[in-house]
Nucleic acid binder design. Structure first.
Lengths: 236, 236
DNA sequence: GCAGCTCTTTTTGTATACACATTGTATTTT
DNA sequence: AAAATACAATGTGTATACAAAAAGAGCTGC
């Protein structure tokens, strides 16, 4: 995927991130220091530093004297997510329109191309990673250091929730994701035009589409199950 | 202050946090691994792990091959802060009212007592730490894992901004801080009553008071200087 | 047969030694 | 004298060895 990283440490960091986002390492998984240290030819010291970095960003949970785990996705997580996401996403999109540097438009377009490519011929994991990257760039454009940490955490779990619920065989879903790609294009245009009002609206639309996709899966029969009664996504 | 910590590592962690919040270690300061490791009788390995934890929470910046620094407070920081704070604070307060566990009220009251004590006989640093703790508890009450990381970062810089601008000799300021304490009491009552609407309003009021205190210092003559033109607070 | 204990194994935490990068200084060169 | 370069000193990154804690296996007693 991404070219050769400048250090084995960086390689581990990138690999773990991707594994978390794509659910290759499911929430709650235990990480084996010794095994990973052999796999990446790193001693335990730098490896544990990577763990702490990732823990700080919300990818891992570190428990004293009891090793590292992939951060959990609980029932409550989903509720919290649905509450925080529209707020933060809206704010970030708006700020992206206002604050972005012109050079950054290129990065956003590159991310979008990668996303469209993943839609055509990629796996679900590739799609999720490309989509995450697209939104990550909007976060960089917004450039508000106080919003970024929450935004990043939302992106982590948004990717994981999407991976959980995405069913490529379902025709509705395929159309839905195609629509998401079109919205990305609209978002790029609105950001480039520095039209923050439109960006805020597109953020809402984009969120609603994503929300709909998740709800469609959670309540397939259309029966009206309140969010509080959702079945837990994983959890040991 | 707080009783004996269960490990030297924990002691270092707590001490550094406090030093950052009180500006005892000003933004941009370099941290000397060897010196701190002697001071806290810790080898460099666990010390650097603490650094990474603190970096993840926004207290420190880690630069490759170039040591750790206290995270910067720039010009742009203040702008970003003024934008994000009302939004996040409002959301957290509202959620605290809705989601808190009854046991947590005690913690909030304890924090508030400590705050009032600091107002009567404490230093500016004690006041800032107690105030930070009060709001930290509201964050715990809200209990939304997606909002918490941004909220925590706001609290760090709110403490530091307050420390920068607080002038105890100024009578206006003293009255202002007394008013803040009264607002805290109102917040406790509203949370306890689970009145989220009132909590949201109180969050706005509390924010406006704090904002006013900062602006009062930044533009003492009342001349209308736009925020974009503020002098940088620190920065080497 | 199962609860509780002890001893062993495995895993995590810390210290230390060494390798490597960066920075500042002195010397050389023009 | 100024610039460039080699060198020394300091400080950061990594590996490894050891200590401590948790988990697991096997034993004993009820």
């Amino acid at each position: 995927m991404s070219a050769d990283p400048k250090s084995r440490k960086e390689a581990l960091y990138v690999a773990l991130k991707a594994s978390v986002l794509t659910l290759e390492l499911p929430p709650g998984s235990d990480l084996d220091e010794t095994a990973l240290s052999e796999e990446f030819s790193l001693s335990r010291t730098p490896l544990r530093e990577v763990f702490r970095n990732l823990a700080g960003e919300g990818y891992l949970d570190l428990r004293e004297n009891r090793g590292a785990r992939i951060s959990e996705m609980s029932h409550k997580t989903l509720r919290d997510f649905f509450l925080a996401a529209p707020m933060i996403y809206g704010a970030v999109m708006r700020l992206a329109a206002i604050n972005h540097k012109t050079e950054q438009i290129g990065e956003l377009m590159a991310a979008q191309e990668r996303f469209r490519a993943a839609l055509r011929k990629g796996s679900g994991a590739e799609r999720a990673l490309a989509n995450t990257r697209f939104h990550e760039v909007t976060g960089e454009m917004a450039g508000n250091i106080y919003l970024t940490p929450s935004f990043q955490r939302l992106l982590i779990d948004h990717a994981r929730i999407s991976m959980t619920f995405y069913q490529p065989q379902n025709g509705d879903m395929a159309r839905n994701v195609g629509e998401a790609a079109d919205q990305h294009d609209a978002i790029i245009a609105a950001i480039q035009a520095r039209d923050d009002e439109r960006c805020a609206q597109l953020a809402i639309d984009h969120w609603n589409l994503s929300r709909g996709r998740i709800e469609l899966f959670v309540m397939p029969a259309g029966l009206d199950m309140p969010l509080g009664e959702l079945p837990a996504t994983q959890t040991a």
